[in-house]
């Protein structure tokens, strides 16, 4: 052990390798064992969720935790780059202000309260059903109408194609909701 210590002593290294003492020979064990935070991680191929450029992202994760989200050099569009927003996609997922619990506000209440997800889903289904029962029109002037204008939807440009497909299919194709819109116009 003494011999080992001796050989690792920076001065001895310096003499041996005739170097300046500022390089690898001066490294501590800690430095020598440093790895990028992404070492040993799994990688998923992702796409930036911000603007319409569609930069490729490499999503590093380990044991169910997101470790880092970086640019994908293989993307023919972005070639590994990310702008400040895309480069901050990891924080988008992990910042302390991120919603993790459902919040519920009773009519006329002055604050939020807790509510479990399953109960909320049931209540929302009830609200949709009730409003629809009251407002749905099957026909008008003898022609098929199959519509309610009392429930509306907003959103889509930040969602997946598959999500927009199911939303439109259920809301319009199933429930007869015609008031559907999102950020897109043009």
């Amino acid at each position: 052990m003494l011999k080992d210590l001796f050989s690792r002593w920076p001065v001895i290294q310096q003499i041996r390798t005739r170097s300046a003492g500022t390089g690898a020979e001066a490294w501590s064990d800690r430095t020598r064992n440093l790895k990028p935070k992404t070492a040993g991680c799994d990688v998923s191929r992702g796409v930036c969720p911000y603007c319409g450029v569609g930069c490729g992202q490499l999503v590093y994760h380990k044991d169910g935790e997101l470790i880092s989200i970086e640019g994908d050099p293989a993307s023919p569009i972005s070639r590994g780059h990310l702008c400040p927003k895309g480069a901050n996609t990891h924080q988008l997922h992990t910042h302390p202000g991120r919603l993790k619990k459902l919040k519920y506000r009773r009519p006329y209440a002055t604050d939020w309260e807790d509510l479990d997800l399953d109960t909320a889903m049931g209540m929302i289904a009830d609200r949709v059903w009730e409003t629809r029962e009251r407002t749905f029109e099957e026909t008008r002037d003898g022609q098929s109408l199959m519509q309610t204008t009392a429930i509306a939807h907003l959103g889509g440009a930040t969602l997946d194609n598959e999500e927009n497909y199911l939303i439109k299919k259920l809301f319009t194709g199933g429930l007869g909701m015609v008031c559907i819109s999102n950020q897109a116009r043009i």
């Binding site: 319409g52 440009a157 969602l159 997946d160 559907i180 819109s181 999102n182 897109a184």
Partner: peptide, 21 residues
Amino acid sequence: LRGHASIQGSTDIPTLYDILP
């Protein structure tokens, strides 16, 4: 130059009132 990650998708598979996919 469209502004959201999938705004082109949200008009192709539209959550818009006047069109179908």
